[in-house]
Write a protein that binds this DNA or RNA. Structure first.
Lengths: 157, 157
DNA sequence: AATAATAGTTATTGACTATAACTATTATCC
DNA sequence: GGATAATAGTTATAGTCAATAACTATTATT
């Protein structure tokens, strides 16, 4: 027999009814994301990285010579907002910007050794942080989740 | 035989390598969310609702008499940011605020008939918009996704 | 050669979130 | 029972972030 007959309450926190929001995928996605994001932000901040700068650094590390427009496309952000981020990564010696000889409008971005090492280290920390949150998901559920999310992304194009 | 031998390109859009981000759940969640959110925003704007005001209206409609602090808890937002949102819902005649006699610090929030009708209509539009994006997911994948997302949410508490 | 489009940049704006400080009211603890 | 804590709502403000427009330099188009 439970300690209380009233299952609508859980140790003083009354259950709030919800007939609509919980069935919306956007709502569920946002709330799940909000569980993960602050932790990712926190571990990245230890290396003075924001989530967005880590994302940039990571894509640059995987694509030596990528130019800013392509990076902006890949990360679905405005190229104007990229500028200061790349500025900072460059000043910290994590990436280099050099003119493309065949098209002098463009700058080729390349991660330095330091940049690649930081990326790898930061990625490990983010993975660890994520694993602590999603730990209870077994490998099958996790793989299924990732696959479905990837399909959701691909929907528009 | 494919039209082109080079599968790394898809009609002029070069594939960007990614060895790290795509394996991160936070990254995938955000990108999936970003597919849905603008559409939800768009259809709600037709009824002069923001996503957050729709969320408030919906929870109030499901919980007649809920007070602002409880609502803020349920939606994981700051109660200070709730004030102007409730102000507007009240001015539009969608919810009422009335003093709780037993605790005069609190205001009981209740959705009006108009508020409930608008909530129902807006929810239908959001569901329709979501269905167009996730249309290709079958019922099984959809149910699995929702269940896993719900478990992710519950992890911290 | 004239005109378009593209890449990068700068500056600015609006939206949203978080924080601190305040008032009124209720709960708590000697 | 009275001093002190905590809570609910509110206001104002500051920081973060994404979106936009305007500009220069360079390349592509016609």
């Amino acid at each position: 027999m439970p300690q209380t007959d009233d299952l609508s309450e859980d140790r003083g926190r009354p259950t709030v009814e919800d007939t609509v929001l919980g069935e919306l995928i956007g709502y569920r996605l946002k709330r799940a994301y909000m569980q993960i994001q602050p932790e990712a932000q926190r571990v990245l901040a230890e290396d003075d990285l924001r989530v967005v700068s880590f994302s940039c650094l990571s894509i640059i590390a995987d694509n030596a010579g990528i130019v800013q427009s392509e990076l902006a496309d890949a990360l679905q952000m405005e190229r104007s907002n990229l500028v200061v981020i790349i500025d900072e990564l460059e000043q910290r010696g994590l990436v280099t910007r050099k003119k493309v000889p065949t098209d002098r409008r463009r700058y080729a971005l390349t991660a330095t050794l330091r940049g690649r090492r930081l990326r790898d280290r930061a990625a490990d920390k983010v993975r660890t942080a994520e694993d602590q949150i999603i730990g209870r998901l077994d490998d099958k559920d996790r793989a299924h989740l990732m696959a479905v999310l990837e399909r959701l992304e691909a929907k528009t194009r």
